[in-house]
């Protein structure tokens, strides 16, 4: 297990390296970037930047410094928000984003896994078609369509839930539902496909031939095998959830990282956008790593 963990950790290094290098090149190649000084900016920011990035040094030293800063999780100052570092903004916004994303993923799993199994068991019957249609709907309805419609219905026309903000826990209900919709749909489809496959396998027939209860056949024999593809989907899902939360936070006006990111992008706040991209990249890489480890732990056939 330890060897496997180390192997996986080492495997993440190239990804990390490419992410960092790619963003470094982007920043330096970009026309109108702060480093080419084509843009007007407050002198104190400019001075700060030059000091920060040591623009007079040769490029490889800049690159080294850049790597070093990131190794310390130091993403530098924000342009847009004066006297605020990107780290401050991330620290401020991350709890909100994490709450929305975490609960959305949880909701998607809680709904998607059982519904997917149900659809598989009732394959080609009404329940299956219904589940599959709902899933297709979830995949076809982008969050920025679902969210406004939900707001119109639950907040504007009926005064059931707040339309935005983070004033109370009720504020999180609509965002979490919206964000969860697409992942529920994907998990349902994956779960359906894998359950159908597992249902055909010989060991399920053995379990039935043993006279076990239906609950035990499904819970102990089918579920652990059928859930593996869902587990490996969680890696890409984490990246997609981060992406999705950008839209959600924008629509519901929640002060999460995604909102800062969009504001930064629209206002060309280079350091903020770069910092958040890197931060998200690190999260995604870390999450993929965790998912891989969980997978290895769940599937006894994975050799460490």
């Amino acid at each position: 297990m330890l060897a496997y963990t180390i192997k996986r950790l080492l495997g993440a290094i190239p990804t990390l390296f490419i992410l960092l290098t790619l963003s470094f090149i982007l920043v330096h190649a970009a026309p109108g970037s702060p480093f080419s000084m084509a843009r007007e900016m407050p002198p104190e920011v400019k001075a700060n930047l030059e000091a920060k990035y040591h623009l007079d040094e040769p490029i490889y030293e800049q690159y080294g410094r850049y790597l070093l800063n990131i190794a310390h999780f130091d993403f530098g100052p924000s342009y847009q928000y004066k006297d605020t570092t990107v780290n401050d903004l991330i620290a401020e916004g991350f709890p909100v984003s994490l709450t929305i994303g975490g609960f959305a993923l949880l909701l998607a799993l809680v709904l998607g896994v059982p519904l997917g199994m149900l659809a598989a068991v009732r394959q080609n019957r009404i329940t299956d078609y219904l589940c599959s249609a709902i899933a297709l709907g979830g995949i076809s309805m982008p969050s920025f369509v679902i969210a406004p419609l939900l707001i119109l219905w639950a907040a504007v026309y009926n005064d059931w839930l707040p339309a935005g903000g983070v004033d109370s826990w009720q504020s999180y209900i609509l965002p979490v539902i919206t964000l969860a919709a697409m992942f529920t749909a994907y998990i349902l489809r994956i779960m359906r496909a894998s359950t159908i496959e597992v249902l055909r396998s010989n060991f399920v027939r053995t379990a039935r031939a043993k006279g076990l209860s239906t609950a035990r056949v499904y819970g102990v024999h089918i579920l652990p095998a059928a859930i593996l593809p869902v587990v490996s989907y969680l890696g890409p899902a984490a990246a997609a959830i981060l992406t999705g939360s950008v839209v959600i936070e924008e629509i519901f006006g929640m002060p999460g990282i995604g909102r800062f990111f969009v504001n930064g992008a629209l206002n060309r706040d280079y350091t903020l956008v770069l910092g958040i991209t890197l931060f998200y990249g690190l999260i995604v890489i870390a999450f993929n790593l965790v998912v891989d480890l969980i997978y290895g732990w769940l599937d006894p056939r994975v050799t460490y």
Partner: peptide
Amino acid sequence: IAMIFQDPMTALNPHL
């Protein structure tokens, strides 16, 4: 009535 099957490689649950 108990049963044993042809392919012992797949008749046992690999996850348990």
